[in-house]
Amino acid sequence: MTSAALEARAARRCHNALNTLHSTHFFSPDLDRELAALGVRDPRAVNFAARAAALGRVGAGPVTAAFYNYRHELVARHLPALWETVSPEQALAARLRAVDATLRRQLGEETVASPEMAEAAELALRATEGCSRGARPLYAAHADLPVPDAPHLAYWHAATLLREHRGDGHVAALLAAELDGPEALVTHTATGRGMNRDWLLTTRSWTREHWDAAALRLRERGLLDDTGELTERGTALRAEIEAETDRLDAGPYARLGAEGVARLTELGTGFARAALAAGAYPASVFGRG
């Protein structure tokens, strides 16, 4: 394996560790509680309020484009009407309060206040200095937000930036591979590393008919076989997508350097394991469904 491939693999492991902890807030009762107090009670509206608020008072079009694998009709059902119930500024403040409560519960007060958390925050923020804004709407929007003072919130903020930076690049790779939103979900689930199909259908508002139609298109391209498994071509395409995503996301980890990436991965993995042990994700999220 080449040194470039080893660096890409190390960067991906680092991203996965940070993203695991970042994403726990989407499943947290703290987020539901904070936004319900502001009048947002539909679970899918909660998701849009939490993730799209950084974009400002936008309508459905930009959010559908940025989120990529959500059905536009679902997005339009909630946006821009959502901003009449809660302002983006209120939603962002509610999200940060929820993250604070969630991390304290999942990791414990000792870990939240530890030197290791402060070190991780410093490393993750340094990595974000290697991010780029061009053609990355979700990253660029979050990059305009202030860095929280508390180390555990600064760490989460940096993890958010790194997650959205990679995600925006991943969307570009999916476009280049000519996979639309449902096709991207079907192929990712077929790798065995994606989220549960039924959970995806519910949260993205696709139907089984949409899923089956996407699978048919993929079979016609020779990417999926009749049993729903990836063909050799399909497996190769998913590998190419991940490799291109790695290439587009190399900047933050090059900025951090090999030792910094290794140390951040070590710290981030420890935090992520603690969150998983605390039940951060419902069992229904993962698996093929």
Rank of each mutant, 00 (worst) to 15 (best):
A275H: 06
L256P: 02
G270T: 08
E242R: 14
A239S: 09
Y253R: 13
R238F: 00
F271H: 14
T269W: 00
L224P: 07
A254F: 00
G222A: 01
T269N: 14
A239H: 06
Y253F: 14
R219I: 11
A236G: 01
E259K: 12
L223A: 05
G279S: 08
R238M: 14
E259V: 13
A262L: 13
T265C: 02
A275K: 03
R247K: 07
G257P: 08
T269G: 14
V261C: 13
A280Q: 11
R233Q: 09
A258Q: 11
L267M: 14
A274K: 14
A275T: 11
A239V: 03
A280T: 04
T235I: 04
T227Y: 08
L264Q: 04
E240M: 15
T265Q: 05
Y253G: 01
R273H: 15
G279K: 08
R273K: 14
G222Q: 04
L248S: 08
A236S: 06
E240N: 12
E266I: 08
W211A: 10
G228N: 05
L223P: 02
L230M: 03
L230I: 06
R255C: 09
R263K: 11
E266Q: 15
G260M: 05
L256A: 06
A239E: 13
G228M: 09
G279Y: 07
T231A: 00
D225Q: 04
R217E: 00
L264M: 04
E259N: 09
A213G: 11
W211V: 10
Y253I: 02
A213C: 05
Y281P: 05
G268E: 09
D249E: 02
L224A: 06
L248C: 04
G228A: 03
E242I: 07
A236W: 03
A215W: 07
L223V: 05
D226I: 09
R233I: 00
T265N: 02
E242D: 13
A272D: 08
